[in-house]
Nucleic acid binder design. Structure first.
Lengths: 327, 327
DNA sequence: GCCCACTATGACAACGTTGTCCCCCAGCGG
DNA sequence: CCGCTGGGGGACAACGTTGTCATAGTGGGC
């Protein structure tokens, strides 16, 4: 800006005025300034601007588990979309379920003075965010609640979803329904397990520990588990898969198996309808989740001071075939 | 920092020293400062720091077409990964194939003084980046080359891939091979079309305009196209789909159709192996693309001044079944 | 011809840091 | 007792902006 001012033969304040479309600059001066800007390829430094103005940095931070997972990339897309409408950029990072990494990312974003934070929590301790929240940075947790702070949270109906999954399978005659969930210290995994249990009780088929296999799972652990479920005294005839990754592992393990158990997967995924049989899922909308969380964040930025809210988004069972196999 | 200094009864410079682990602070003083920092929840302002030091902002900008597309979210993940190793955060945005939006995003990132830019170009004009590049911001284009500037570029072997696809299908006896590509003003779509044409020539089956349908495509346009290809005088017996989205549209359109043409899709995708028939694809690695581009960017940041490079990543045909149907 | 209002412009401080330079003081050798 | 050394610490400027206030010139009404 200094260089521009020198080249145009004006003060830097005048350049600032031109750059910011402030009134009170003679057209011919403005023209000279613009020419200088063009010649020098000047672009104003947003950091300096924001520092000086003490205002918003125009960024929001997004910490999620893994952008590579289609579910989270859907969330990211929605967040980006809303942020764009509100003139913000998104800085994001993946925690890989590592609480340390989550914390590192979140605090790094705070150091950059993001206007707000969206976090898919990896851990259960979030008191590290208390100073930031007290300092006025709004934080919204999504997909999972925070561990030890009260804050805005947007969840999906994990319990209701798995209840529905079990109920659906039971209504097709299944009495030995297994549950393959993610690591039990992950909130959603635990909630879905609770829903599974509740669903079993409601269906009157009882809760049997041997039908549950919590993760972390990979392709081979799922394969082994399915083997076990198939060869036990009273084999499982149906499976509820706890998330999109596990569903895929299950599908892979079952590929080529003649006698397939019924299957309902939590999380919808592309092509589920084109598999054979098409996969019945508990669907919920990644972009709705991202949108709800971002809307909530912006409401806070707009001055909403009401007590922290917890939004639970509905899920719906999409019957496609794999869950309608009779026992 | 001011407040911390006041509370600890020292100068702000001393606080700065403590925060930056600089030597020359008495342990007892440091302790007082740390206590004050803790009490006030102080976190140093990275913008101010970077402004003062005139150094890197520790961010890189990523402009892509749509984070929601699994291909690009794979790229994003890889970029994030490398950036993390080098202590950088990633700011990203989706252009939705809109050149204006791409430009807006890229320039916004430049205003934020990103250390470097990774761009999946939406348009063909990138001279707007010349001032930035001259000012020292390295730019790497990925997946597609820049329109009118010479710059580092990382591509995949689009032409080789489609040649291979056509050759493969021809070797299974197909002589009427159709190509469904994306909008012809998209570089990759055009390259793949060229590869298709070249493949037809090499296979000695000739290039026939009526077998080509360039986009933009949606589910219904693909459906119509397939209808046309099927009912023409000499119907197409095989299809090359120009990208992952089009492949999915084709699969959806063919669902339930008895007499399916052979199919090879450009871009691999999850579950391709679990469909029936499993989908033969031209595979290339999104994360390899992201990694190569980011590595190149960091090489520039490390001072590599060699002439702009063009890296072309290999693709490979993965036969799974859908392309091995004999004509 | 004088005062006032108004336009166009600039000087300067400040945002929150850090780099540079300088000062104070204790301890020590001569 | 003097001078020197070195550790601990502070004052100040500067990064690139913008907000505040001041100032010079201009033209109009009386």
């Amino acid at each position: 800006m200094n260089d521009v001012a020198r080249l145009a033969g004006v003060s830097i304040k005048t350049v600032s005025r031109v750059v910011n479309d402030e009134p009170g600059v003679h057209p011919s001066t403005a023209e000279r300034v613009l020419a200088a800007i063009d010649q020098l390829g000047f672009r104003r430094n947003l950091s300096a601007r924001n520092l000086r103005r003490g205002s918003s940095t125009g960024t929001i931070g997004l910490v999620l588990e893994d952008v590579g997972n289609p579910f989270y990339s859907g969330v990211t897309r929605a967040v980006e979309e809303i942020a764009r409408l509100r003139g913000r950029q998104v800085i994001s990072g993946s925690s890989d379920e590592d609480p340390g990494r989550e914390r590192e990312l979140a605090l790094e974003f705070c150091s950059r003075r993001v206007d707000g934070l969206l976090i898919v929590p990896a851990g259960l301790q979030h008191s590290y965010l208390v100073p930031e929240m007290r300092a006025g940075t709004p934080v919204v947790f999504l997909d999972r609640p925070a561990g030890d702070v009260v804050a805005d949270t947007v969840l999906v109906d994990n319990i209701g979803g798995t209840i529905e999954a079990v109920t659906h399978l039971a209504s097709h005659g299944h009495r030995r329904i297994a549950f393959l969930g993610d690591a039990p210290d992950i909130f959603t995994a635990n909630e879905r397990l609770r829903g599974y249990r509740e669903g079993c009780v409601r269906a009157g088929i009882g809760y049997h520990e041997e039908l549950v296999a919590m993760g972390p799972h990979d392709e081979s652990s799922v394969r082994t588990t399915l083997q076990r479920l198939h060869t036990m005294r009273e084999p499982a005839t149906a499976i509820v898969a706890g998330n999109n990754r596990i569903t895929v592992y299950v599908l892979r393990a079952l590929a080529g198996v003649a006698e397939r158990p019924a299957l309902v997967g939590f999380d919808d995924f592309e092509l589920a309808d084109l598999l054979s049989p098409p996969v019945t899922v508990i669907a919920h909308d990644a972009s709705a989740l991202g949108k709800a969380a971002t809307d909530l964040l912006f409401a806070r930025l707009d001055g909403d001071n009401s007590p922290p809210r917890r939004v639970v988004l509905p899920v719906r069972l999409v019957p496609r075939g794999s869950g309608e196999v009779h026992a």
